[in-house]
């Protein structure tokens, strides 16, 4: 079965004092991969500035907008149509002996190949006093442990909008036990990497039709590398595996690689930004 999604992304940026030129990069284009295909897209902006497609540092497609005039507002309105195939995330045969998973993951070759996804960044480093916050059950294979981790993160944190921002340290998230999808994701990443399971931050869109957590913003989840299974998506915010409701845009080492909007604006004073995301499904 395949689903067709119409995704609408709107962003409004207001600058208190008029800006004299700017360069923005939007990381919002759904990627083409084995389970999804970008059928068509359109990005409009109120400045009538050229829209170019480029790539970010990890090779994901970006939209670049360059404004040379003076302005106080930037509005962009993007529409993507994506076809999503349903795939069974359980459709792989795990190692018969769970110990084999950990043996593979302990090898230098494996760790060298996945150096990036095992790297501890400020967002994904467990504070020392929380090192034992979650432990793996070595009698179970890596996948089962990740499933358990997914559930654990889901229960450990409470989904709450507006209490954290992009700069909130992991320690505070662990202590205060609330946050948004980003925070769920970073906590999962930190624990997974601590146990030598390569994991990466994924940014994308979530179809909330089934009552999933999200906040009409871009969504974040995890892809973890499971021996024999490859990259599998875990959504700790909703305690599910990422499947046909998740439309991926990009992945990276942490949020910094995946921020939907980066820009250089030549302006003084404050600015305000808001995004609205809407995902509408139609079955085929």
């Amino acid at each position: 079965m395949s689903l067709t999604y119409t995704i609408r992304y709107q962003s409004k940026n207001h600058y208190e004092s008029p800006a004299r030129g700017a360069s923005w990069q939007f990381l919002i284009l759904p990627e083409d991969n084995r389970s999804q295909e970008l059928i068509s897209w359109n990005v409009a902006n109120n400045l009538a500035a050229d829209v170019n497609v480029s790539i970010n540092g990890l090779g994901f497609k970006t939209i670049r907008i360059q404004a040379n005039q003076t302005f106080t507002d930037l509005k962009i309105d993007a529409t993507f149509i994506v076809q999503k195939e349903e795939r069974n995330p359980f459709g792989f045969i795990p190692n018969a002996d769970p110990a084999m998973d950990y043996e593979v993951m302990a090898t230098v070759d494996f760790q060298a190949d996945h150096e990036t996804e095992l790297r501890k960044t400020p967002f994904t480093t467990l504070p020392v006093q929380h090192h034992a916050i979650f432990s793996f059950d070595r009698k179970k294979n890596a996948f089962d442990n990740l499933m358990a981790l997914n559930t654990w993160v889901y229960h450990h944190l409470f989904f709450k909008v507006g209490v954290t921002d992009v700069n909130t340290p992991l320690e505070e998230i662990i202590m205060k036990r609330h946050g948004v999808c980003q925070d769920f994701t970073h906590l999962f990443l930190a624990i997974s990497r601590q146990h030598n399971v390569p994991a990466r931050y994924v940014s994308g869109y979530l179809h909330q039709g089934n009552g999933y957590f999200g906040d009409s913003q871009m969504h974040a989840w995890v892809e973890a590398f499971v021996p024999n299974g490859g990259w599998i998506g875990f959504d700790p915010t909703n305690n599910i595996l990422a499947a046909q409701n998740h439309v991926k845009v990009c992945h990276g080492i942490d949020y910094n690689d995946c921020a939907p909007l980066k820009g250089v604006v030549y302006a003084e004073g404050k600015n305000t930004t808001s995004h609205i995301v809407e995902v509408i499904a139609s079955q085929q």
Binding site: S23, Q25, S54, I55, G57, G59, T62, R64, V264
Partner: peptide, 10 residues
């Protein structure tokens, strides 16, 4: 320079 790294990667 905004965008320099992408030009380099390409």
């Amino acid at each position: 320079v905004p965008g320099l790294f992408a030009a380099y990667q390409k």
